[in-house]
Simulated assay, not measured.
Amino acid sequence: MFNTPLPTVNELPSTRKLVRSTVIAMLVAAGLLVTVVMPSEYAIDPTGVGRALGLTQMGELKIILAQEALADAAAPQASAPAPQVAQVQLVAKPAPQSEATSAPALKTNQITVTLKPGEGKEIKLEVLKGKTVSYAWTALGGPVNYETHGEPYNAKKGYFHSYGKGKQVKDNQGEFTAIFDGTHGWFWRNRSNSDVTISLKATGDYLSVKQ
């Protein structure tokens, strides 16, 4: 056994050296904590050194594995499948259509009048406001002058509304919508030297035909 002599007072480190050594050790430990421990264990890399050394990726992998382990432990055991319940689909029956909502029945009339030379005649339909009539007429024997117009019930003498007119026309077709309750129709005049027959077909929601 060897006896080592005790160091003298001069050989012992001073307080200043001890403090400096302690500070250096703390700085080294802090540096290792920030650059090595925190990236590798917690994926925290404030300096970027850990990622450059591959330590941050290691920490990220550890965190993922830990989360998966917790999820597996918390997952409930598979229970027996719930019994299936038969689904019944209800089919709604169409509601019967009421007579009030059905479309009104349209009237159709085929009318023929003959005009002697210089003679004028008219055919009128009794139509209520807002109702529409479509028509087509042809003059056989020569062209005629015509006007499509309407007169309200109890109209003042000479008052009428014109829907259209023309001279020396052999045929015409179209439709009009009554702007008032009254009689609406056509007036023709034969200005030729021979008889002309007008053949008219009218279809629409009107009440009656007046000649």
Rank of each mutant, 00 (worst) to 15 (best):
I24W: 04
A25M: 03
L27R: 13
A29S: 01
V36T: 09
V37S: 08
P39W: 09
P39E: 11
E41F: 07
P46N: 14
T47V: 15
R51A: 07
R51K: 14
R51H: 13
R51M: 07
A52P: 10
L53Q: 09
T56Q: 12
M58H: 11
E60G: 10
I63S: 14
I63R: 08
I63Q: 14
A66V: 13
Q67R: 12
Q67F: 15
Q67D: 15
L70P: 06
L70S: 11
A71D: 15
A73P: 05
P76M: 04
Q77M: 11
Q77I: 02
A80T: 07
A82K: 01
Q84K: 12
V85S: 11
A86Y: 08
V88M: 11
Q89K: 15
A92G: 13
P94D: 13
Q97P: 07
S98K: 00
E99G: 06
E99W: 03
A103T: 05
A105G: 06
A105T: 15
L106D: 05
L106I: 12
K107Y: 09
T108P: 09
T108N: 11
T112I: 06
V113Y: 05
V113E: 04
V113N: 01
T114P: 14
L115N: 00
G118A: 04
G118E: 05
G118R: 12
E122Y: 01
I123M: 02
I123L: 00
K124S: 02
L125F: 02
E126N: 08
V127F: 01
V127W: 06
V127P: 01
L128F: 13
G130I: 14
K131E: 10
K131Y: 09
T132F: 04
V133G: 01
Y135K: 12
Y135T: 08
A136D: 05
L140T: 15
Y146D: 01
E147Q: 00
H149W: 00
G150R: 00
G150A: 06
P152V: 12
G164H: 03
K165C: 01
K165M: 02
